[in-house]
């Protein structure tokens, strides 16, 4: 029986691991078999994580967090939790690798998964011009014409990053202003390779075996027009990853895990949640890390009184 098991390996999960490990609780962190490190594994330069004045690469930040967690005795397992029973005093977790674990407390930090446009043929064209990972795929679009869909910081970051390769980058956004931070919007608007298409959404994907373009629909007057493209990068946000626990843990109306006030306590005793899976608002590496710390302290407190 473990004192604490942490599910997820982004900034929230690793921070919870650092704190619970330093408290002598020997946490097991189940990192996922292929998404270990979480969303930051797909980013490049992280400039806003405090304590790194020159910035650092997302994957490097995650490697640092893992090393720090392991230094204090965290055990990291590269596997996927596929089934849980969190309702009893003893929490039971099963992994894709066929192992079963028991724990007194569980910290859920499963993060969020990228959102799809929901268009027909989106799956078929994924990896054939439609992409969710600018850092992975930008390289293949040298001197090509591509577009980024979205209006948040991720969309700005991707569009700016992609100008290193592409001849032209359209930024397609359904509103007439961006919700991204001011510094990112300014960088995007000042980039001569980026052209913003406001009040537009992608209505249709074109191409056989490979993306050749899209139909854009004007969100104000409904008119449509075609845009020829070699690549389309989708950055329209994320949805909290709750499928594992949604039949046991109470969710908010927006399908985030519901926690009690400023704490990480879910409706189930001994079950705590942290990071993007509870956060519809801020979703930063540093807020996720802070939230992982809260969960660790809450779990520690719970173990002292049970």
């Amino acid at each position: 029986m473990r004192e604490v098991i942490i599910i997820g390996s982004g900034p929230a999960g690793y921070t919870a691991a650092i704190y619970t490990a330093r408290a002598g609780l020997k946490p097991l962190l189940i990192a996922s078999s292929v998404e270990a490190g979480g969303e930051l594994m797909k980013t490049t330069e992280v400039e806003n994580f405090p304590g790194f004045p020159e910035g650092l690469q997302g994957p490097e930040l995650m490697a640092n967090l893992q090393a720090q967690a392991e230094r204090f005795g965290t055990e990291v397992l590269l596997d996927d939790v596929i089934e849980v029973d969190l309702t009893g005093d003893i929490k039971i977790l099963k992994t894709g690798g066929g192992e079963t674990f028991e724990a007194k407390t569980v910290i859920l930090s499963t993060g969020a998964a990228y959102r799809e446009l929901g268009l027909p043929r989106e799956k078929e064209l994924s990896g054939h011009g439609v992409s969710w990972c600018a850092t992975c795929d930008g390289f293949f679009f040298r001197e090509r014409t591509i577009a980024v869909v979205g209006g948040g910081d991720s969309a700005m970051e991707e569009a700016i990053f992609l100008t290193r390769f592409a001849a032209r980058v359209y930024l397609i956004h359904r509103r007439d202003s961006f919700k991204a931070s001011k510094i990112m919007v300014e960088r995007a608007l000042n980039n001569p390779k980026i052209e913003v298409i406001y009040n537009s959404e992608v209505a249709e994907l074109h191409g056989e075996g490979k993306l050749t373009g899209v139909t854009l629909r004007d969100t104000v007057n409904g008119s449509t027009n075609n845009l020829d493209l070699d690549g389309l990068f989708i950055a329209i946000g994320n949805d909290p990853r709750v499928w594992l626990v949604e039949n046991q843990v109470e969710l908010t109306p927006e399908k985030f895990i519901k926690v009690d006030g400023r704490s990480s306590r879910t409706n189930l005793p001994g079950v705590f949640a942290a990071g993007d899976v509870i956060d519809p608002t801020y979703r930063q590496a540093i807020t996720a890390a802070g939230s992982g710390c809260v969960a660790a302290l809450d779990a520690e407190h719970y173990l002292q009184s049970h």
């Binding site: 292929v34 994924s126 011009g129 293949f140 679009f141 690549g231």
Partner: peptide
């Protein structure tokens, strides 16, 4: 081989490309 997304996993058998996959996926 028309790679525009990586990781791209392509299976060749008898000199022919017989299967293509894109993206990191769990072992099972």
């Amino acid at each position: 081989y028309g790679i525009v997304s990586i990781p791209a996993l392509q299976v060749f058998q008898g000199g022919e490309l017989v299967k293509q996959m894109v993206g990191a996926k769990p072992k099972p």
